[in-house]
Amino acid sequence: MSRRTLTFSIFRYNPYDPEFEPRMQEYVLEETPRMTLFTALTDIREKLDPSLQFDFVCRSAVCGSCALLVNGRPRLACRTRTDEIPRRITLHPLPFFRLIGDLSVDTGSWFAQMAGRVQSWVHTTRPFDPASEEGRMSNEQALAIYELDRCIECGCCLAACATAHMRDDFLGAAGLLRIARFLIDPRDQRTDGDFFEVVGTDEGVFGCVGLLACHDYCPKNLPLMTQLAYLRRKLALASLRPPLRWILRQIARRVA
């Protein structure tokens, strides 16, 4: 394998340093076999510039810390091998989220408020009985819930979504997927109406205009398009029920 020399152009800004203007800074690095952006950025920090801020935790694409714009596309940096991308690499922090410094953004706060807004927990009146065996569930159902539970909150869907950028209060694909996850969970006793209250609005599923960038850039390949469509259908149909019921009642009254 021929060794390449990689040129990184990285967005730099330290809001706590008055002498630090936002700028793009270049770093040159020798490529090594199977190098990822994790190895590359760590090398840059340890050998070239110890002040460079970026976030990695698991470096194996399960924690969602390291989403960046790599040449303009939202991606997980740890899972981007340098041999997949051109020699010149431009790195920007994820848009949409508050910038902490350089490539580091505050995804945690956004996702925490989202979880609060969608009341991201199982609502039930059934008490937990430590002495009895667990409630049963079919394996298919468990797998279906797990499938929707796989979101790692990396924020790529929001960074890619023009609607989220235009409307600050939009829940985004991540928030809507979270609702879908509880909607199909038989342990959650919330009714369609309860869910409707949370996401049947223009900040929720009806704020989505179907750009599908979330679907296309999700690093976990979550079925976002299918789930958003499912929520939209379900809630739109639910909205027809009360007026229809009202009309039927009026008719019944006339007839009677």
């Binding site: 039930t124 065996e133 468990a142 969970d185």
Partner: peptide
């Protein structure tokens, strides 16, 4: 008990 409580709280354990 811990496993069952996690199931109660919503963990989608694989099932038999």
């Amino acid at each position: 008990i811990a496993v069952r409580q996690m199931a109660y709280w919503g963990v989608p354990w694989n099932r038999v």
